[in-house]
Simulated assay, not measured.
Amino acid sequence: MYKLAANDGMSLRVIVVYRFMFATVIMVPLALIFERKSLKKINRKVLLQAFLCGLFGGSLVQNLYLQSLVHTSATFVAAMINLAPAFTFILAICFKMEKLAIRTNAGKAKVCGTLMGIGGAMVFTFYKGIDINIWSTNVNLLKHHHHQQVGPGPSYHGTGHFIIGALFGLLSCVSFSLWLINQAKMSVGFPYLYSSTALMCLMGSIQGTLYAVCTVRDWNQWKLGWNIRLLTVAFVGIIGSALFVFLVSWAVRLKGPLYAAIFNPLGLVLVAIVGSLLLDGTLYLGRYNGGKMRPNLER
């Protein structure tokens, strides 16, 4: 959805703003209906935690994620999420929310899983590999939206841009892990899922708006019509933010931040499959699963 809106000429930063605005509009009424008593529990500490959640899990992580998408591809950025369990595990240990317990079977499994996640991400990044021809649907939604390039131009495929994109993807992964840690702490003193999600989305929309207003000079970017732009921001706002944040917060409260992070690698598989089916992308083994899929995703 991000790719379609960006190829239609919409600024990625504006997409982030509308995303959290739509999520806020959905979650605030739900919070007022189901958790009205939570209003009395909101204090400075809760607002600070909501601000940090909105930053690390909202505006910052999304803008870093999308900048990484500009310089690499949807599949590669999804692959970087494989590092989220590793960063979350390390941060959880630092904040004393998890125990290493290397002598136990559970501790050994966590360490091995962390190393496997890092190793898999590195292989994906640096190994070229061969193409994988499983299916061909000849469906390319991007061919109907060709107003501008998402990448920075002819030098887009250079190593320099790829490294920059990988760095942005890495930082977005760290930001996501920090959100899970902060969300776990917030859920202890403020166990209201609808309200915490609404506060986070509200903070994310405010932060994203301030950033976008300072960096996007073309006010036409903010216009929405009955087109792919409206569909994208509505979809990623309602599903990608409101529902997603609510479910992840629920999982964090029940099982902790590490448990919620370990499911992120599934995104790589889903994005690769859907991208090849709907965006006419070719699957490649290794790093160029994202790299050589990129020309089709970017045209």
Score class of each variant (00 low, 15 high):
residue 137 T to K: 13
residue 9 G to L: 14
residue 100 L to Q: 12
residue 217 R to G: 04
residue 110 K to E: 05
residue 130 I to C: 01
residue 24 T to Q: 05
residue 85 P to L: 00
residue 58 G to L: 00
residue 224 L to Q: 08
residue 21 M to C: 08
residue 137 T to R: 15
residue 279 L to H: 12
residue 43 N to V: 08
residue 278 L to T: 00
residue 233 V to F: 07
residue 150 V to D: 04
residue 56 F to P: 09
residue 4 L to Y: 07
residue 292 K to N: 07
residue 215 T to N: 13
residue 135 W to F: 04
residue 118 I to C: 03
residue 294 R to Y: 01
residue 36 R to N: 05
residue 35 E to Y: 03
residue 80 M to V: 09
residue 40 K to Y: 06
residue 133 N to W: 05
residue 56 F to G: 01
residue 137 T to W: 07
residue 146 H to V: 07
residue 217 R to N: 11
residue 176 F to Q: 06
residue 42 I to P: 10
residue 204 G to W: 15
residue 96 K to M: 10
residue 65 Y to F: 13
residue 47 L to I: 11
residue 106 A to R: 14
residue 76 F to H: 14
residue 109 A to H: 11
residue 11 S to G: 10
residue 90 I to P: 11
residue 44 R to A: 05
residue 50 A to V: 06
residue 197 T to L: 02
residue 215 T to Q: 11
residue 32 L to F: 10
residue 38 S to N: 09
residue 246 F to K: 02
residue 27 M to V: 11
residue 221 Q to V: 10
residue 244 F to Y: 13
residue 165 G to Y: 10
residue 88 T to Y: 06
residue 153 G to M: 10
residue 8 D to P: 14
residue 108 K to N: 04
residue 23 A to C: 09
residue 65 Y to A: 08
residue 268 L to K: 03
residue 152 P to L: 00
residue 73 S to R: 12
residue 105 N to Y: 14
residue 106 A to C: 06
residue 171 L to P: 02
residue 2 Y to H: 12
residue 177 S to Q: 11
residue 130 I to G: 00
residue 71 H to A: 12
residue 75 T to D: 06
residue 113 G to E: 13
residue 220 N to P: 06
residue 92 A to F: 09
residue 162 F to C: 02
residue 9 G to T: 11
residue 149 Q to L: 11
residue 1 M to H: 15
residue 187 S to M: 13
residue 126 F to S: 00
residue 231 L to Q: 04
residue 208 G to I: 08
residue 89 F to L: 09
residue 11 S to R: 15
residue 193 L to H: 15
residue 105 N to C: 05
residue 291 G to H: 14
residue 118 I to G: 01
residue 39 L to T: 04
residue 177 S to M: 04
residue 210 L to R: 03
residue 145 H to Q: 00
residue 70 V to N: 08
residue 161 H to W: 13
residue 82 N to H: 07
residue 107 G to Q: 13
residue 131 D to F: 07
residue 240 G to Y: 12
residue 112 C to P: 02
residue 34 F to K: 13
residue 57 G to A: 07
residue 150 V to K: 15
residue 269 V to T: 02
residue 16 V to F: 03
residue 103 R to K: 15
residue 246 F to W: 15
residue 260 A to K: 09
residue 282 T to I: 10
residue 284 Y to A: 03
residue 119 G to V: 12
residue 130 I to H: 15
residue 114 T to Y: 13
residue 17 V to N: 01
residue 107 G to H: 14
residue 52 L to E: 05
residue 228 I to H: 00
residue 47 L to R: 14
residue 284 Y to E: 01
residue 58 G to W: 02
